[in-house]
Amino acid sequence: MRTLIRLEITRTLRNRKFMFFSVLYPAILFTVFAGSIGTDKKVDGLGITYVAYYMVAMAAFGAMTAVLMGNAERIARERERGWVRQLRLTALPGRGYVAAKIASAATVSLPSILIVLVIGAAAKDVRMAAWQWVALAFSTWAGSLVFAALGVAIGYLATADAARPISMICYFALAGLGGLWGPLTSWPHGVQQVLDYLPGRPYASLGQAIEAGNAPHAKDVTVLVVYLLLFAGAAAWLYRKDTRKA
Score class of each variant (00 low, 15 high):
residue 181 W to I: 01
residue 24 L to T: 10
residue 65 T to K: 01
residue 18 F to S: 15
residue 45 G to K: 06
residue 35 G to I: 00
residue 96 G to M: 00
residue 164 R to K: 05
residue 232 A to P: 02
residue 5 I to P: 09
residue 34 A to K: 12
residue 48 I to V: 13
residue 220 D to Y: 10
residue 119 I to V: 12
residue 131 W to L: 08
residue 237 W to R: 12
residue 241 K to H: 12
residue 238 L to N: 00
residue 169 I to R: 11
residue 96 G to T: 00
residue 184 L to K: 11
residue 241 K to Y: 08
residue 84 V to M: 14
residue 139 S to W: 13
residue 188 P to Q: 02
residue 227 Y to N: 02
residue 111 P to E: 09
residue 77 R to L: 13
residue 9 I to N: 07
residue 69 M to W: 13
residue 42 K to D: 10
residue 108 V to E: 11
residue 23 V to M: 08
residue 234 A to D: 02
residue 140 T to K: 02
residue 225 V to S: 13
residue 138 F to H: 05
residue 243 T to Q: 14
residue 182 G to P: 05
residue 174 L to G: 06
residue 38 G to M: 08
residue 50 Y to W: 09
residue 22 S to T: 15
residue 201 R to F: 01
residue 224 L to N: 01
residue 160 A to L: 05
residue 160 A to N: 12
residue 43 V to Y: 07
residue 80 E to K: 14
residue 211 E to F: 14
residue 229 L to A: 15
residue 233 G to H: 08
residue 29 L to E: 02
residue 12 T to C: 13
residue 128 M to V: 14
residue 162 A to G: 04
residue 231 F to M: 05
residue 216 P to N: 08
residue 112 S to N: 06
residue 179 G to H: 06
residue 189 H to A: 15
residue 144 S to C: 04
residue 149 A to T: 03
residue 137 A to Y: 03
residue 118 V to Q: 07
residue 221 V to Q: 03
residue 191 V to K: 00
residue 104 S to I: 13
residue 84 V to C: 05
residue 172 F to A: 02
residue 168 M to I: 11
residue 75 I to N: 01
residue 46 L to E: 06
residue 81 R to W: 14
residue 109 S to T: 11
residue 138 F to S: 10
residue 179 G to F: 06
residue 15 N to W: 07
residue 132 Q to T: 03
residue 83 W to K: 03
residue 191 V to C: 00
residue 243 T to G: 04
residue 72 A to K: 10
residue 41 K to V: 13
residue 38 G to T: 04
residue 53 Y to C: 06
residue 43 V to Q: 09
residue 238 L to H: 00
residue 44 D to H: 09
residue 209 A to E: 08
residue 81 R to I: 14
residue 117 L to P: 06
residue 64 M to V: 06
residue 59 A to C: 10
residue 120 G to R: 01
residue 175 A to C: 11
residue 118 V to G: 11
residue 136 L to M: 06
residue 67 V to S: 07
residue 67 V to C: 09
residue 157 L to P: 06
residue 72 A to R: 08
residue 28 I to N: 00
residue 100 A to M: 09
residue 16 R to A: 12
residue 72 A to C: 10
residue 134 V to W: 02
residue 227 Y to S: 05
residue 98 V to H: 09
residue 13 L to C: 14
residue 237 W to D: 04
residue 45 G to C: 03
residue 17 K to R: 15
residue 49 T to L: 03
residue 236 A to L: 09
residue 148 A to G: 15
residue 16 R to K: 13
residue 161 D to C: 07
residue 182 G to V: 02
residue 170 C to G: 14
residue 143 G to A: 08
residue 29 L to Q: 05
residue 230 L to Q: 04
residue 212 A to P: 08
residue 174 L to V: 11
residue 113 I to H: 03
residue 231 F to L: 02
residue 221 V to D: 01
residue 220 D to R: 04
residue 43 V to T: 09
residue 173 A to R: 03
residue 222 T to E: 02
residue 108 V to Q: 14
residue 167 S to V: 08
residue 39 T to R: 15
residue 177 L to F: 13
residue 223 V to M: 01
residue 120 G to I: 00
residue 158 A to C: 10
